[in-house]
Write a protein that binds this DNA or RNA. Structure first.
Lengths: 313, 313
DNA sequence: GGAAGGCGTAAGGTGAACTTATGCTTGATT
DNA sequence: AATCAAGCATAAGTTCACCTTACGCCTTCC
C-alpha cells in the first residue's frame, strides 16, 4: 500500500528540485526527506531519483509515478473538500414507502419540498396493506406512511420506532356531477344514502369496513352494486355515473374532473402516521425528509380545504 | 492529509458490514479497526459510522467518503501496477537534436527502430551550426548528433560528456544525370573539376571549407557560380542541371531523382558523433535510443552502400 | 585547496498504531 | 427471567516507524 505522505513528498520534490529545498519548504530536515523518498523507492521497487553527490533528480520512473501522484493527491484533496463542504448538510438515499393514496397524494409536494436539498435522493414506493411498519423495522424502508382507522395511538415497539401524526383524513362522499346529491343545498342524510347505487372497495378493506360501520349505525348498508379494487378505479367509475362512493378525503388530490364531494356527518377518520426508526431520526437526510413531508401535508391540506371546503375536523 | 490505510479500512468495513468481521479479514483486532476508524472520523471531522452497542453502519457522510475512497484506492492500485509492469522497461521523454542532414537522414530509421518501445517518446529537433554540444551540456537536449571535420577525437569535457562515433561521412560529388561525369567510366579528375560549374554552400560552412581545401590541393578552386544555403536546395539545383556539387554522402539518403554521385579521391571525411551526458547514459530510455540510433545508422549505411557503391573508406 | 552546499547513513528519541484486557449493551437461548 | 454470546468502546502497554542529530562523502565555487 502506497503512502500518501510519501507521494506528497515526491510531488513537492518535483516542484522544488532538491531534497534540501523540499525539506525546508515542509519543515523537515533533509535527512527525513531523503529517507522517506528512499522508502518510497523500496515500496514501488523502482529507482525514482537519480542521486548524485550534489543533486538528485527524477528518473523516468519517478516522473511516471509523479503523474499518478498528482492525480491521486488531487482526488484526495477533492474528497476532503467535498466532505468538509457538506459537513452537516443532509445527503444520502432515503427510502420511503406509503399506502397507495398517500403515495400519489404526497409525491408531487414532496418532490417540490426536497428540491432544495440536492444531496438527498428519495425513493418512494407503494406498499400493500399494512406492511409499512414491518418494512421500517427491517430497514427495508427508512420512512413509511401508514394509516390507522382505530384512533388508538400506535405503540412504538419499545422505543425502536417513532410515529409522527401527519394528518387526520375523514371519509367523504364522492358523487358524480349532476347527481342529486351534487347540489350543496341538498342535505346528506345517512339513512337515505342506503338507497343509492354504491361503488365500494371489496369487503375487508379498511375503508369498506368504515363505511359499512357508519351506515350500520343508521341500520342500513350500502347498496353494494359494484365492488372494485383501487381508489383510483372507484373514483373514475363514480365520475362516469355508476354510483356514489365513500372515500378518504386524500383521494381527492388526484380526483378526475366531474366529481363532487360531500362531507359525511359523523364520518370515520383515519390517522395518517409517518413511521421511522428512532435510530435514524438523527440522520440529517431523514430529518430533512420528515420536515419536507410535513410541508407536503400542509400543501395537500390547503388544496383539499380549497376543494372540499372546511378543514376536516 | 488523509491516510490511505484508513481509507482502505473504511472500504473493507463497507464490504464486511461489521468492525469485527473487518478486523478478522485483515488480521487485526477489532479494537484496532475501531480506533483507526475513529481516527479517520477525527481527520475528516465528520461522523462516518453510526455506532450502536452491537453494530456499526455507515452514515451518509461515510458513504460519501466511501465513494471517493473507492476511486482513490483504485487509482493507487493502478499506479502501483503500472509502475510494477514497466519496471525496467525504458520509458520517458528523450530530446535529441541533430545537424540538418543527419536529422532528415536518420529520422525515418529511428522512428522505425523505436517503434517497439512504446513508452519512449522521442523529440528530434534540428540544430544550427555547432550548438549541439552546448545543448547537451545545458540539458536542453539529451542526445545531439554533431559532425566534425577535423578528425580529432573530441574531448569529453572532463567526463561530463560522452561521444559515440556513429559513422564517417565522406564528401562525394553530386552531378546531374546526363552530365559528362555521370558516366562511371569517366574518371574523376580533381584538377578538371575546377572547370565545372559549381553549386556550393556559402563561405564559412564546413562542407564548403572542405571542398575548397581539397581543390586547393591541386591548385584550383570551384567555379563558384552559385552559392546557396541548405543541402536540400543545393541538391535540387544540381538535379536541375545548374552545376555540380560536393556534398556529404549522407545527403543522398533524401536525394531527388536525377542525381548521380561519384566518389571523390582523397575527399575529406567528417565524423558524426552522438553526444550524451555521461550521467544520462544509464537511463534506460537513453540507452534504448542510442542503440536505436546505431541501428538507424546501419540502415542508412546499407542504403548508401547500395546507392553509391562501396562503403566509405 | 579550502569552504560550502547537497546528499547519504547511523544512532537515538518520540509518537503513532496495534495488542491485550476489561466493561458495556443488546439480542438470543434456555 | 436469567444467562450467554456477539459486538463495540476505552485504558494501558508495547512495538515500530519516522524524525532529528551527528557525521562523512562528494562536488563546485571562490
Amino acid at each position: 500500500m502506497l503512502d500518501l505522505r510519501r507521494l506528497q513528498l515526491l510531488y513537492e520534490f518535483a516542484g522544488h528540485g532538491t531534497i534540501a529545498a523540499t525539506a525546508a519548504a515542509l519543515g523537515y530536515t533533509p535527512s527525513a526527506v531523503s529517507q522517506q523518498l528512499s522508502a518510497l523507492e523500496r515500496e514501488v521497487d523502482a529507482q525514482l531519483l537519480d542521486r548524485t553527490a550534489r543533486s538528485a533528480e527524477l528518473t523516468d520512473a519517478g516522473r511516471l509515478l509523479l503523474e499518478h501522484a498528482e492525480q491521486i493527491l488531487a482526488m484526495v484533496e477533492a474528497a476532503e473538500s467535498v466532505l468538509a463542504a457538506q459537513n452537516g448538510t443532509p445527503r444520502g438515499l432515503v427510502t420511503m414507502t406509503a399506502f397507495p393514496t398517500a403515495a400519489v397524494a404526497f409525491a408531487p409536494a414532496l418532490a417540490h419540498s426536497l428540491r432544495s436539498h440536492e444531496g438527498v435522493q428519495l425513493v418512494l414506493r407503494q406498499t400493500t396493506e399494512g406492511s409499512g411498519t414491518r418494512q421500517v423495522r427491517t430497514a427495508e424502508a427508512d420512512i413509511s406512511l401508514v394509516d390507522d382507522w382505530t384512533g388508538r395511538t400506535p405503540d412504538s415497539a419499545a422505543g425502536i420506532l417513532r410515529h409522527y401524526l401527519l394528518l387526520r383524513d375523514p371519509l367523504v362522499l364522492a358523487v358524480p356531477q349532476g347527481h342529486r346529491l351534487a347540489d350543496p343545498a341538498v342535505p346528506v342524510d345517512l339513512a337515505a344514502l342506503c338507497e343509492e347505487s354504491w361503488v365500494t372497495a371489496p369487503l375487508g378493506e379498511p375503508s369498506r369496513t368504515a363505511i359499512d360501520r357508519l351506515l350500520a349505525d343508521v341500520d342500513g348498508a350500502p347498496g353494494a352494486a359494484w365492488e372494485f379494487e383501487g381508489i383510483g378505479t372507484i373514483m373514475s367509475l363514480v365520475a362516469r355515473g355508476l354510483g356514489i362512493a365513500a372515500v378518504p378525503s386524500l383521494s381527492f388530490t388526484s380526483a378526475a374532473p366531474g366529481l363532487v364531494h360531500r362531507r359525511l356527518p359523523g364520518a370515520p377518520v383515519r390517522d395518517v402516521y409517518a413511521v421511522v426508526r428512532a435510530s435514524s431520526v438523527r440522520r440529517p437526510a431523514i430529518d430533512v425528509t420528515l420536515t419536507a413531508l410535513r410541508e407536503a401535508v400542509r400543501d395537500v391540506e390547503r388544496v383539499l380545504d380549497a376543494e372540499i371546503g372546511g378543514a376536516p375536523s
